[in-house]
C-alpha cells in the first residue's frame, strides 16, 4: 500500500469514526465520507464495509441506490441548474441548454478536463427568483441565457488549470 493510499484510507476512517450520532449505519458512514472527500472512492466502499462488518457488495447496494453519491472526483466547481416546476415554467430549459453548451456537456456530469461538475436540481428553494442556478453553493436568480453563460464561462477562465487531483 503506497503512502498516498494509506493517507486516503486514514481520512476515510477518520470520517467514518467521527460521526456525531451514537450509532452509524452504512448510509450514515457513506454520507460522512462523501462530506469529507466530496466523493466515494473505491477505498471508501471497502472501509465502510470493514466498519459495518458487511461485504463491499452490501455497501455498494446502498451506495449505488442513491443518486447523490458520486464515485468519481467532483470538478473544482459545481454548477447546479434548477429544473423544478417553477423554474421550468420560467424558462429553465433555455438556461440549461446554455450552460450545457458553455460547458460542452450533453447531460449531467463532469467536463472533460474535470474542472466543472454539472448537476440537475429539482428545487433550490428560491422559486420566487426563478429560473435559478447555483454555482459553487452560491444561488444566482433571475437567470437569463446570457447571464448563465457568463457565470459559467467566468469559471472556466478563472481557473484554467484543472489537472490537479481531488480527494486523493
Amino acid at each position: 500500500m503506497t503512502h498516498q493510499q494509506s493517507a486516503l484510507r486514514e481520512r476515510i476512517r477518520q470520517a467514518i469514526t467521527t460521526q456525531p450520532q451514537s450509532f452509524s449505519t452504512i448510509l450514515s458512514s457513506l454520507l460522512a465520507v462523501q462530506d469529507a472527500l466530496g466523493w466515494l472512492p473505491e477505498e471508501a466502499i471497502e472501509e465502510v464495509a470493514a466498519h459495518s462488518g458487511g461485504t463491499v457488495n452490501d455497501v455498494w447496494a446502498v451506495a449505488s441506490f442513491y443518486t447523490n453519491f458520486r464515485f468519481t472526483p467532483p470538478g473544482r466547481h459545481v454548477v447546479e441548474v434548477c429544473w423544478g416546476p417553477t423554474c421550468h415554467l420560467k424558462g429553465a430549459q433555455a438556461i440549461l441548454d446554455e450552460v450545457q453548451r458553455a460547458l460542452g456537456l450533453e447531460h449531467e456530469g463532469d467536463t472533460s478536463d474535470g474542472g466543472v461538475s454539472l448537476k440537475y436540481n429539482t428545487c433550490l428553494g428560491a422559486c420566487s427568483q426563478g429560473p435559478v442556478i447555483m454555482v459553487d453553493h452560491a444561488i444566482m436568480g433571475n437567470m437569463t441565457s446570457a447571464h448563465a453563460h457568463e457565470a459559467v464561462a467566468r469559471l472556466d477562465k478563472s481557473d484554467g488549470n484543472h489537472a490537479s487531483q481531488h480527494g486523493a
Binding site: I45, V56, D58, W60, A61, S64, F65, Y66, F71
Partner: peptide
C-alpha cells in the same frame, strides 16, 4: 448485490 434503483435496478457486484 442489488445495484442502482427503480427502473435501473439490477444484480451486480460492488463497482
Amino acid at each position: 448485490c442489488m445495484v442502482e434503483r427503480s427502473g435501473k435496478a439490477l444484480v451486480g457486484t460492488s463497482r
